[in-house]
Design a protein around this nucleic acid. Structure first.
Lengths: 352, 352
DNA sequence: ACACGCTCCGTAAACGTTTACGACAATAGA
DNA sequence: TCTATTGTCGTAAACGTTTACGGAGCGTGT
């Protein structure tokens, strides 16, 4: 274990000078700085993080809080790793490291967060899987811990956030399906307290209103945002009287279970039930028929999330003045074959 | 921010006594300990991690190293979160925290690890996605950093490890398919340097030998362990002369792409090509036909991984003497409908 | 010759803990 | 009564850094 002490001894310098040389301070001779840098490289010296952060009062790491079961692991997994890539890129510019803090399944997310911030193991955090009303914001504000969120909430205050345009995609999906001849469109939303559920539903209602279609809560289904949830929803759809001809899924993974359930009933996705899902994924791309869904630039989203965070850190804020406080992230339709125009069967469609 | 100083002042005690009280040392009056604990709770005091770990020389956190693209994110995601659950349970008993350290896509995994261990931000690490020959072991040993690996390698030395029984499942899969009438069985292995590829292939060869079947490298396919990889493999299978009647997949996600490609060709998985995949997943469970695959107790695996790690930490080793050094983790067949007995078509099968 | 500024470097304090050590009182043993 | 022991607590050093401060050396301008 080579510390700054050993390095200084080896160089016949004081540790103060060595430290200043390594940290790029001005008052050190260019030549000796070279010597120090070279020796540090040779001896494999890396500053001890505990000592450094104790003195500086800052750890140079930010934490991405993941709550298992609600945001990751069970269902929408690959989403985060796309975001993380952009996030790391943004943080890297200022030599900030990212660590993932995973709340255990049996631990309360709020007290987990409390523990993490009190320990001061990170300088800032990124929150995901926001609830409609989220107490974690208060915890962070009390602890004076900078943060941004991926997801909105009703008590966000003036904190920074990014969220997907759930209203927009639900609304435009309804319109699209309407244009394709569908008059009875179902929707599947999560059965847990996640903020995106109400938003998606709101867009759905707006879309119905746009098209002059009635809202019927009998075809609003609540389910897990997983394959299993999709399977269950499909079962309910099949059991519905006046069966819908199309459905909007809040999570693309649901389509897998839905496809299966339809197949068991001898029905074909697309032909017998049009499907549009919230987000593009490798699974949806390789289903048959290919899933119609929405795409977003995960990398760019992650980068902006990182920049938002930086704009909240006093040390870097000056470089990020033009970063917005909040952002509704746009998604782009990816046409699959899962929502073809409604086939006219034995009768002419009522209004067209 | 309330530190131990404020706590001590508030209690009219010295910080030494307060610290000893909080840490459960013997030489402190039971009554004053109560007072301290109560006050700490009220003031919301949590020891500063930097100060604590600087003094103790230990951080009470272990790091799970994830290398994007190779182990997580792109493909086999939900696997890790099952393991992590058990892992956290094991570590929690000794108040150790788990952080996930995610190597950025554009960073070299080796230097990333080097940086992480040198900073001493964690006391120990868990390695995943082991390569056939993995230099990271040397890095860790040089740095005196305890570690365990999820996956074997040829230079493991006497380090602790757990790995899935890739040979076993490949071998038994071949036997199973042979019993069901298949004589020409293909296999798909990863196209990157991951240790599991050769192991899977070895089991495959053993299985062929057991059944008296010839090995034909024309039906050994190398591909990404993803949906896309499965799609590609299916294309190659279809283009093979003397087409195989069954295939073994190293990753369950490949089945999605494979199913699609078969569907495009008007063929049905199971009926026209029997499929067995390495691991159970929600996706496989809801495909049609349901995937035949192998199940393992992820939670138990994670727990054992945690215990192995603890047995390598001097502070806890005594409690974990009976933990083995290495373990080949067993998997159990889950029968789906993707590998039915081979239909006899116009001819009787050669040998029965 | 003197004052002054500049460059470069060493000194030492500080960050928040833990812990070895010693001090003191009270108790027990003789 | 004297000594030894035990229980409880305060003191201060230590962990590895960073950084405010001061000082030595040297050149420059007057």
């Amino acid at each position: 274990m080579t510390g700054i002490r050993q390095l200084a001894d080896h160089l016949q310098l004081s540790i103060g000078t060595v430290s200043r040389a390594l940290n790029g301070k001005a008052d050190v001779n260019a030549q000796t700085r070279e010597r120090v840098l070279k020796a540090a490289m040779e001896l494999g010296y890396v500053p001890n993080q505990s000592g450094r952060s104790l003195r500086k009062g800052t750890t140079s790491t930010v934490g991405l809080i993941l709550t298992q079961g609600n945001s990751l692991g069970e269902n929408n997994d690959n989403f985060f790793f796309g975001v993380i890539h952009g996030l790391q890129a943004a943080l890297k510019k200022h030599k900030l490291d990212l660590v993932l803090l995973l709340c255990a399944r049996d631990e309360d997310p709020d007290s987990f967060l409390q523990r993490m911030v009190a320990q001061r193991i990170v300088d800032a955090v990124i929150l995901t899987a926001t609830r409609t009303h989220d107490e974690r914001f208060d915890i962070l504000r009390r602890a004076n811990m900078p943060f941004v969120t991926l997801g909105r909430s009703d008590n966000l205050g003036d904190s920074s956030w990014i969220d997907l345009d759930f209203e927009g995609i639900a609304r435009s999906s309804v319109t699209r399906l309407h244009e394709r001849g569908h008059r009875r469109i179902a929707v599947a939303v999560p059965n847990v307290d996640a903020n995106l559920g109400p938003l998606f539903l709101e867009g759905y209602r707006q879309g119905l209103a746009d098209c002059g279609l009635p809202f019927d809560e009998n075809i609003v289904f609540h389910a897990e945002t997983s394959e299993e949830g999709g399977y269950d929803v499909a079962g309910k759809v099949l059991a519905t009287e006046d069966r819908p001809t199309a459905i909007l899924l809040i999570a693309e993974l649901m389509s897998v279970g839905l496809y299966r359930r339809l197949g068991e009933a001898g029905l074909a996705p697309g032909r017998d039930l049009a499907v549009i899902a919230e987000r593009e994924s490798p699974v949806g791309r390789f289903l048959l028929p290919r899933l119609t869904c929405f795409r977003l630039d995960l990398d760019a989203l992650g980068r902006m999330l990182g920049e938002m965070l930086l704009s909240n850190l006093p040390a870097f804020a000056e470089n990020y003045r033009d970063v917005p406080k909040g952002k509704i992230w746009p998604l782009e339709l990816v046409e699959g074959e899962s929502d073809p125009p409604l086939r006219v069967r034995d009768t002419i469609l009522p209004d067209g």
